[in-house]
Simulated scan of single mutants.
Amino acid sequence: MNKPIKNIFMQGPVNPVFIGESIAKHSSKKDIGAHSIFLGQVRADVIDDKTVVAIEYTAYEELALQKMHELREEVFGKYDLTCMHVHHSLGEVKAGELCLFVFTSSKHRQTAIDACEEIVERIKAELPIWGKEIFEDQSHQWKLNS
């Protein structure tokens, strides 16, 4: 049976309340022994004497969602996960706000940690998502992933 493609995108920053609620929903699942969580936050980097005040995220959404679906299936095949949640911002996210939330759950901690790390690295490397750094003078440049 083909699983539906999940929408990982949300407009604006990932709200900490949403993260807390997501974690709380798992307290009824008694087969989970570990969670691993990655939170990506926008930094106020200084580049050429200008400070980043926000990043504006855009994506080729249809392709990104298809690639994320394939990545999800691959990671579930590789690791014994109970569940996985991925949420990525679109639009403007100010410095200090959260832009990426990856949450994996498993019976064992190392599985959850390894899967979470792989997902984060592959999202950065494989999904067509771009960030435009916006500086305090409103000039901008495309962010290079590192």
Rank of each mutant, 00 (worst) to 15 (best):
P4C: 14
I5Y: 01
N7R: 04
I8Y: 01
I8G: 02
F9D: 00
F9T: 04
M10E: 08
M10P: 01
Q11D: 13
G12N: 05
P13W: 12
P13K: 14
P16M: 05
F18E: 10
I19G: 01
E21W: 05
I23D: 01
A24D: 12
K25D: 06
H26Y: 02
K30I: 09
D31C: 06
I32F: 03
G33L: 07
A34E: 07
H35G: 04
I37L: 10
F38K: 00
L39C: 14
L39N: 08
G40S: 08
Q41P: 06
Q41L: 12
A44L: 14
D45F: 12
D45E: 13
V46W: 06
D48P: 02
D49K: 13
T51C: 10
V52M: 10
V52D: 05
V52F: 10
V53A: 09
E56R: 15
E56D: 11
E56F: 14
Y57T: 06
Y57Q: 05
Y57A: 03
A59H: 06
E62R: 07
A64P: 02
L65T: 01
Q66M: 09
H69M: 09
L71Y: 03
L71R: 03
R72T: 15
R72C: 13
R72S: 13
E74W: 09
V75A: 03
V75G: 00
G77P: 09
G77N: 15
K78Y: 12
L81P: 00
L81T: 00
L81I: 07
L81W: 03
T82W: 13
C83R: 06
H85K: 12
V86R: 00
V86C: 02
H87T: 06
H87S: 09
H87L: 08
H88E: 06
L90T: 02
L90I: 04
L90S: 02
G91N: 04
G91V: 01
G91D: 01
G91C: 05
V93F: 11
K94H: 13
A95C: 15
A95Q: 09
E97Y: 15
E97M: 15
E97H: 14
L98A: 12
C99N: 14
C99L: 12
V102D: 00
F103G: 00
K107G: 11
H108E: 11
H108Q: 15
R109S: 10
Q110F: 13
A112D: 03
A112W: 01
I113S: 07
D114P: 04
D114G: 07
A115D: 00
C116I: 00
E117I: 08
I119F: 03
V120Q: 02
V120P: 00
I123Y: 01
I123D: 00
A125H: 13
E126W: 15
E126G: 05
L127K: 01
L127Q: 05
P128Y: 11
P128E: 05
W130E: 03
I134D: 01
F135S: 03
E136A: 14
E136I: 13
E136R: 08
E136S: 14
Q138V: 15
Q138M: 14
H140L: 10
Q141T: 11
W142G: 04
K143L: 14
L144Y: 07
L144F: 09
L144C: 10
S146C: 10
S146E: 15
